[in-house]
Computed example of a mutant assay.
Amino acid sequence: MKQGNSTSTIFHADLDAFYVEVERQYDHSLLGKPVIVGGMGPRGVVATASYEAREFGVHSAQPTTIARKLCPQGYFLPGNHSLYSEVSKKFMHILRRYSPTVLSVSIDEAYLDMSGTKEIYGPPIGAAETIRQNIRDSIGLPVSIGIGPNKLVAKVCTEYAKPDGIFQIEQIGAERFFAPQPVRNLPGIGPKAEKALNNLKIFTLGEVAMAPDGLLRRALGPNRAGHIKSRAKGIDNTPLQEPRRAKSMSAETTFDADISSQSEMEVALKKLIERVGTRLRKSGNVARGVSIKLRFRDFATITRQHTLTTPSDGDQTIYQTAQALLLTAMRERNESIRLIGISVTGLDQRATQLSLLDSHSKTDSDTSLALDAIRERFGFKSISRGT
């Protein structure tokens, strides 16, 4: 079913401050206190902050050292990922009682297609309240639910439902609802696109919707302009269906001129891994293997692969493995290359593998997720790990 259809009803359910609220279930003394979950070391970053901690300026993806200065009275916790995984599975199980079509997009949020369920569960607001209460009674967690005619509108509505509420916009009111909002509120508009639009005196989604196509192409590029303009009106025709589970993910780059420097190869490899790693974590998977691909100046191509001892979605683990494979390959054939590629293989759902991760893998995973959040907020090139 196309989600632009006015008869579609899509829910977006998002557990509020998930890690914090799970911790509070097991330690009631944390209720009402500023709680921060994340890395505890000097390079640690905040994974989740309670609403009480956010009042002090603490937010996700922030270095823990800064969070401690902003909120010295806060309760800082390292997190319990195996516990979060178990709670997440219970959350998804509850959602599937209400709809056969549930699209999990992360450990704590999912979309539900509730189209045609009015006769069973009543009007959408009432159905959402029933789901919220079931989640509260079953796992004790607050959940915010956005309701819309498509995934886009439902997602934006969730931000207005927070914390622990329900918010609905129907298709007839979607464009009017979107119009006054700043362009950055539209999922898919990052800081770079926001700046380009602002430079053209376009600040709201209503102004995006009314802008000449040529102007938008200048700001967003010819391939994105029309898509963003439709979304600025609350139009989203992407179907709600679980994608086929990929067995691998990869990226590669061809150099303008052949390179022979190992340091140049490693820099290129790191950049590719950051992009593949971001996709891997966004998909909710971990990898069991890493593979590199090298193409030499005579077009001969080789691949080298390694199976990880512990499944991982962390950039550092992937990079260290790929770097070792690169060194081995270059010892075998120390010549300049024209192409380098990286693949992560043997993908499996992260939620089912978290309990297998050792402390190093969890730290690597958490740090990589935090960097993803920073890039999502400030642009992909805003931050990178050193090699």
Rank of each mutant, 00 (worst) to 15 (best):
T367S: 10
E119H: 14
T367D: 08
I302H: 12
A287W: 03
K2N: 15
E55M: 11
Q323F: 11
R43A: 07
G41C: 11
A47T: 09
H227F: 11
D16M: 08
V183T: 08
S355C: 12
T253V: 08
K90I: 10
T310R: 09
M114Q: 00
Q171S: 12
P212K: 03
G234S: 07
D27P: 05
M92H: 12
R304V: 08
E207K: 09
K33W: 03
E376W: 10
R244P: 15
G314L: 06
S138N: 06
I273N: 08
P191K: 15
Q323L: 14
E119L: 14
T367E: 07
K381H: 15
S115I: 06
S104Y: 13
G346N: 03
G277C: 02
L197W: 00
D27E: 05
F296T: 03
L112W: 04
I147H: 02
D348E: 15
I342A: 06
G4N: 14
L30A: 03
I202E: 00
E332F: 09
L103T: 10
Y75S: 12
I342G: 11
G289D: 06
L103V: 11
Q62M: 12
G206R: 05
M92N: 09
T48N: 05
Q323C: 11
I107G: 02
G206H: 02
I235F: 10
L272W: 01
V105M: 02
S144Q: 02
N237C: 15
L369F: 14
M92I: 14
D315C: 07
R54N: 01
R375G: 06
K381L: 15
Q353K: 14
E129C: 13
M265T: 11
K293G: 05
K151F: 02
E194V: 07
I120C: 10
